[in-house]
């Protein structure tokens, strides 16, 4: 009982055994935009995988060179037409991915599916509905992103909190070693983002996000008529589609590392600060 009560106090930042104080870390626009983004990215990734499943292959250039995809998720059938094997082709090399990619179980039966049902939205193969979800949340992401960028620049949040300083760059090697040892900044150092964190956020905000929106728009034939330069920038519609796919998985990679860092550097403290704004700084504490 005592353990639980103590744990609860620690989680809420109410322990009095160590000197600590509350620090207001995230203003409301950051918190609201963060959670809208989180929902958008989950829906966009999963509905995107459902759309991809309609033609689970990627190409380079303007048109699809069906003989030579750079990536393809295929299913193999036996003589009676039953799906028996799922194969992922990467640059012409086959990898057996039965059960996950190319072929996975739908209602207990192995079926031809690029990505499995548990990874797509809707779970069933339903291109028309997946497209509607995808475009609706793409609008929400762009509107939210517009608001966040306006806020970030005007309030100097980007300049103050996200732009890496000279010191950040100089400390980068030490930062990498510390992160690899799962040693995270604490105490006063936790009041601002560290160098690696700043670089990760800048990479996602200023490179990945604009890139995934622009390559998404390049896939629209009407947008190509309005802005043919998009095709020139990305090297054709099919290359844009491939870049869009790579960006989506880069977002997934960011998400996985982001969640790992949140958990390892103090789940509740981080979660509380992104929900209420308040973050607990422990002076000389073991983890912040």
């Amino acid at each position: 009982m005592r353990d639980i009560a103590e744990g609860a106090r620690t989680a809420l930042g109410l322990t009095t055994t160590k000197p600590h104080y509350f620090f207001f870390r995230h203003k409301w626009p950051v918190r609201v935009c963060h959670w809208i983004n989180a929902i958008c990215l989950a829906v966009l990734l999963m509905s995107g995988l459902n759309i991809f499943n309609a033609h689970p292959a990627l190409y380079l250039g303007s048109g699809s060179n069906f003989e030579h995809p750079v990536l393809a998720l295929n299913a193999m059938t036996d003589d009676s037409g039953n799906v028996v094997k799922g194969t992922t082709w990467i640059a012409g090399k086959p990898v057996n991915t039965t059960g996950v990619l190319g072929a996975s179980r739908v209602d207990g039966e192995l079926a031809a599916r690029g990505f499995p049902s548990w990874a797509t939205l809707p779970g069933a193969q339903w291109l028309a509905m997946a497209r509607q979800w995808h475009f609706a949340f793409a609008w929400l992401l762009v509107i939210n992103g517009f608001f966040f960028f306006a806020y970030g620049f005007l309030s100097r949040h980007f300049a103050r909190d996200l732009a890496p300083t000279k010191a950040d760059i100089q400390h980068l090697p030490r930062e990498i070693v510390d992160h690899a040892r799962l040693k995270f900044p604490h105490g006063e150092e936790a009041r601002h983002y560290n160098g690696l964190q700043k670089l990760a956020y800048c990479f996602v905000l200023f490179l990945l996000a604009p890139l995934i929106v622009a390559t998404g728009l390049t896939m629209s034939p009407t947008m190509d008529a309005a802005f043919p330069i998009l095709l020139w920038i990305f090297g054709g519609r099919q290359t844009a589609r491939t870049i869009h796919f790579i960006c989506a998985f880069s977002f997934l990679g960011f998400f996985i590392v982001h969640i790992a860092m949140v958990v390892l550097s103090g789940t509740w403290n981080n979660l509380r600060s992104m929900i209420t704004g308040w973050y607990v700084i422990r002076k000389g504490g073991d983890h912040g």
């Binding site: 759309i51 309609a54 303007s62 048109g63 699809s64 291109l127 497209r131 034939p221 589609r241």
Partner: peptide, 12 residues
């Protein structure tokens, strides 16, 4: 011109 299928592929 480039023909764009709703499935995602294109053909010129």
């Amino acid at each position: 011109t480039r023909h764009d299928c709703v499935e995602g592929w294109s053909c010129i």
